Amino acid sequence: MEVRTIKVFTTVDNINLHTQVVDMSMTYGQQFGPTYLDGADVTKIKPHNSHEGKTFYVLPNDDTLRVEAFEYYHTTDPSFLGRYMSALNHTKKWKYPQVNGLTSIKWADNNCYLATALLTLQQIELKFNPPALQDAYYRARAGEAANFCALILAYCNKTVGELGDVRETMSYLFQHANLDSCKRVLNVVCKTCGQQQTTLKGVEAVMYMGTLSYEQFKKGVQIPCTCGKQATKYLVQQESPFVMMSAPPAQYELKHGTFTCASEYTGNYQCGHYKHITSKETLYCIDGALLTKSSEYKGPITDVFYKENSYTTTIK
């Protein structure tokens, strides 16, 4: 009895394709271990004539594949690729409408935090270190965002349907971005203890939790000093293409032309909904596939993004 075979390709990165001759009487799992086709788990399936010449994702289970996976995804987590594939199996079914010149995501599976993050990423200057993220990001900007969303979920250790947080998501993504040249110098002034300067680099240099107003941050924000008295913390120097200011959701007025974009969060910790506000020729609110415009805006804002380049204080 002759062994019926077909020729397929296996890959971990969709760049390096490895030619395989597979036995049609055995499952993919018996031949390769966990195997995925377009995100779908085909591990328990036997090869079919229609699979001839198709590319299958496999887990990096030998040295060659491990090197290829690390170079593309910059992670050695053995569960990463499987999590990416199972997320992709959902995100490829989502709709990605162009809204006001940006790629958004039609609401499904509690994905409003991903839509808000995706919209924000198209408006701030950011370059990702893992080629996987950078490639998928370019495709997302062009309207094909399924891979990018699935990668975000995998890097953030999230599953489809789980509630997510924009600030946490951005923080994970910033860790995989090139923020080497970003720098922030802060000064804390206390009447009792004097003053202390701190220099922050990388992710810490672009994120701040405690106030939404970048102007206020430049002037000074009140913080408790270690001595128990009130101290003032203010920005001395900022070198970065953008800054992200966050605070627990509270009524906040966004003035046209003073910011790049913002995240609105309605609801409580267990259950809520994100919308995205962007400042173009007027203010726009993007909620999944829905767009509304207004000249002014007041609502429960939790993150505001500002364009920056270089700032030095005039406070002496």
Rank of each mutant, 00 (worst) to 15 (best):
V3D: 14
R4V: 13
T5Q: 13
H18P: 05
D23G: 11
Y28D: 05
G29S: 08
G33N: 04
G33D: 03
T35P: 07
I45M: 13
P47K: 05
E52T: 11
K54H: 13
T55Q: 08
D63K: 07
T64D: 10
E71H: 08
E71R: 10
Y72G: 06
Y73W: 03
Y73R: 03
T75G: 05
T76K: 09
S79N: 10
G82R: 13
R83T: 06
M85L: 12
M85C: 07
W94E: 05
P97I: 11
Q98E: 12
V99K: 12
D109C: 05
D109E: 11
N111F: 03
Y113G: 00
L114T: 03
A117L: 04
L119M: 07
L119P: 06
T120N: 11
E125F: 02
K127N: 11
P131F: 02
A136G: 09
Y137D: 04
Y137F: 14
R141N: 08
R141S: 10
G143K: 01
L151N: 02
I152Q: 02
L153Y: 15
Y155N: 01
C156Q: 08
V160S: 03
D165G: 07
R167T: 03
E168H: 14
T169E: 04
T169Q: 05
M170H: 05
L179T: 03
D180I: 05
C182D: 02
V188R: 08
C190Q: 02
Q195W: 09
Q195V: 15
T198Q: 14
T199N: 07
L200Q: 15
G202L: 01
A205T: 04
M207T: 12
G210S: 02
G210Q: 02
G210A: 02
T211Y: 04
S213T: 01
E215W: 06
K219D: 09
I223N: 04
K229L: 12
T232Y: 09
K233D: 01
Y234N: 05
V236T: 06
V236C: 08
E239W: 05
P241F: 02
P248S: 10
P249F: 00
T258C: 08
C261F: 00
A262E: 00
Y265W: 02
G267P: 07
G272E: 01
Y274D: 00
T282Q: 12
L283K: 00
L290R: 12
L290H: 14
K293C: 14
E296N: 10
I301W: 00
N309R: 10
T312F: 12
I315Y: 15
I315E: 15
